[in-house]
Design a protein around this nucleic acid. Structure first.
Lengths: 120, 120
DNA sequence: TTGACATATGCTTATATGGGAATATAATAA
DNA sequence: TTATTATATTCCCATATAAGCATATGTCAA
């Protein structure tokens, strides 16, 4: 089985750095035409269009026709699953001092158990 | 060019749901043997070993030999880049009311400019 | 040494990928 | 109409993938 399609979910969609860049440009909240993104990012137009296609399929961006240009805007709330998933780990790098104490305590408790239970 | 390797960075590594599951089990902070993960997740042992291999290459987990088992533990701080990237978007789904106001204001400003500047 | 257990690695296969280049579609202007 | 601008789509291709299964490696026990 190959890797899940990039259009499967947000996690796969944002794995591509260039797609994160596109999202970054749209992060201001204003809609951008494809050409504006091309200029802003300095990548070839077909590349931008393709990446936008992936982002659109996942729902991260939405399009609207405006004359001969297509305006893309960010649907940032689609990124929430990523935030929700990673947020619980925040404590591991904030409150550095607390973390060290916590770690030490955990290790002492572990040492006692692991030897006897084997954890398997 | 194919998709970037799963071992390229954290974003690619966590795109796989099963790898996020493994991380979830290790989230408690305690080290787990491979067999423990196999039991906890109900997936075949080779699959677990392979996914752990990816996570290890990226630095998300680290191993230590303990008898005939290998204990894997989470290096949660490696997830920080993901958190750092997604955190700025948090405001788009929290403070719902503020967001609606903000959106309305933005749209009014946009409407005035987009028509004249064309954004390209 | 032999055997049981724990984990890793090798193999095969179908498949989606991202890039580049060219070209198609669409909308406006002349 | 024809030309020009804006964007999308198609084709080609090398490649890494995840899964399943078998097997190798490593470690302890008898």
């Amino acid at each position: 089985m190959p890797r899940a399609a990039t259009t499967t979910d947000v996690f796969n969609a944002i794995a591509e750095p260039r797609r994160r860049e596109i999202i970054g440009v749209l992060a201001g909240g204003r809609a951008h035409a494809v050409g504006a993104l091309v200029k802003a990012l300095g990548m070839p137009q077909p590349a931008v269009s393709k990446h936008l296609g992936v982002l659109r399929q996942v729902g991260i961006v939405s399009v609207s026709k405006h004359g001969r240009q297509r305006l893309y805007r960010l649907n940032a709330q689609e990124l929430k699953p990523v935030h929700d998933w990673v947020k619980p780990y925040e404590r591991f790098w904030t409150h550095q001092l607390d973390r060290i104490k916590e770690r030490a305590e955990r290790k002492m408790a572990e040492r006692a158990r692991d030897q006897k239970e084997g954890l398997s």
